[in-house]
Deep mutational scan, measured.
Amino acid sequence: MIVFVRFNSSHGFPVEVDSDTSIFQLKEVVAKRQGVPADQLRVIFAGKELRNDWTVQNCDLDQQSIVHIVQRPWRKGQEMNATGGDDPRNAAGGCEREPQSLTRVDLSSSVLPGDSVGLAVILHTDSRKDSPPAGSPAGRSIYNSFYVYCKGPCQRVQPGKLRVQCSTCRQATLTLTQGPSCWDDVLIPNRMSGECQSPHCPGTSAEFFFKCGAHPTSDKETSVALHLIATNSRNITCITCTDVRSPVLVFQCNSRHVICLDCFHLYCVTRLNDRQFVHDPQLGYSLPCVAGCPNSLIKELHHFRILGEEQYNRYQQYGAEECVLQMGGVLCPRPGCGAGLLPEPDQRKVTCEGGNGLGCGFAFCRECKEAYHEGECSAVFEASGTTTQAYRVDERAAEQARWEAASKETIKKTTKPCPRCHVPVEKNGGCMHMKCPQPQCRLEWCWNCGCEWNRVCMGDHWFDV
């Protein structure tokens, strides 16, 4: 396979590697080409510095992935760790964990309700045991953590790749202090920090972006993250068709209702045909949960890209028209025109101005929308079919299609509260000796007794199943 190397943020060049090629071997190839010592090179990928003893497969490097290699003399205490030698983080029983690669970060837990604080980093599902597709590297999971809308060759929703760059020099040479644990960490600028490894760059702020994971991409090709779309790892039924499908869209209502993408497309087109989208002054033209839940309008309007190009163009047109109407304007009634106009409040005669090729020149009556006339309008008909009709959803289907309910059931079956801080902690095999993952707590306690870890627990039921 081919990976592209950008040395000291210059133009990239291809390097041929195998899945079992080590990072140090990659350094040696680059060092020979650039005429520099291999031990002064640092390989940066997806916000993480890659260790010498890791392989291309370990690092989730795919065909035509772009890695950054910078030349920086080692500072005291760094060289041993980078070589894969006596790194205290690798000691058996050590409590410190390697910062998780962005290629394996899962933010789907952050669609849980606000009262489930902490689960994004504490609760991990076991539903990723799908067998890898044919042709994928051994052991590589097909679980997708992110979804994007690819405006490039795909023109559809695709699995996405999370990447990070330095907000100062805009190069992907920043190593994160810690990985993101929720969508806010990724979507809110300057929320996460790190250290830029580019020479002479003092940058410390992280800037995240997404790429389409279905095809090789260049540095400049980015895609918009659709953070309401998630892999259906909890096997929730769709609120409309009641099938279990994946991926799904999880509405931001209190129940976190789930809808499959085909039904979401149908829901949007139906509402669009009836012009029953909601115009929100802050958000724009949007839709609420299909069950009509309060405070559930979709905030990231790129989710409506699921409509496809033709329907999305209609959505944008109707949204612009609705904006004009909300501002007190009118639409030209001549067939084939429909231009938005903003006449004076007491102006009865409205002319669709033909300047700049935008208007048709038609003069019409503001009251009856017919060709302009003197005197009273002959008839004014009330528009028919403008009443909002509820999208029919079966109550039982709505009850079963809740992301929140599956989460709470998982928590109930696989977790116990920490005796000190009461945060839910998952036990997935292993011994009875637990350690609270909350940095402010870190209590060592017994899963069996529910009390602080002691010699009695150690001698009596340390390794009970």
Rank of each mutant, 00 (worst) to 15 (best):
S136A: 13
G135M: 12
I259E: 00
Q347G: 09
L342E: 06
Y143R: 11
R42L: 06
K151H: 14
T386Q: 11
C377L: 02
G118A: 08
G194V: 05
H433P: 00
Y267I: 03
N232L: 00
D130V: 10
G359T: 13
G94T: 13
P216S: 08
G94H: 13
N190W: 07
H461E: 00
L50V: 02
L307V: 07
A172T: 12
A225R: 02
D18A: 12
N273F: 04
P88G: 11
R104L: 08
V121S: 15
I122D: 15
M458T: 15
V186S: 01
Y318A: 02
L50N: 00
A38F: 04
L174M: 15
E195N: 11
A379T: 13
N254Y: 08
C418Q: 02
Q78G: 13
H461L: 00
V324G: 04
A91S: 09
V3A: 02
P14G: 04
L50E: 01
G319H: 11
P37N: 10
R305D: 05
E376N: 12
Q282V: 10
P37K: 08
P14Q: 04
Y285P: 04
E353N: 09
E98D: 11
L228H: 08
D126V: 06
C150H: 00
Y285S: 03
A390R: 12
C201I: 01
C421G: 02
C368T: 03
V157G: 02
R97E: 11
E96K: 08
G361Y: 11
R305M: 13
E382C: 14
G319D: 10
V258K: 00
Q63Y: 09
C154D: 00
E309Q: 13
E395A: 11
G35H: 06
K435F: 12
C154I: 01
K408C: 08
T103S: 11
T237N: 12
A38D: 03
P159W: 05
V330A: 06
C377G: 02
N90I: 12
P288I: 04
I239S: 05
H227L: 05
A214M: 10
C59Q: 02
G84R: 10
R392L: 13
T103H: 12
F13H: 03
A339M: 15
A291W: 05
V248F: 01
H279F: 13
T231W: 06
N454M: 03
M458P: 15
K76L: 15
D53K: 04
Q400N: 15
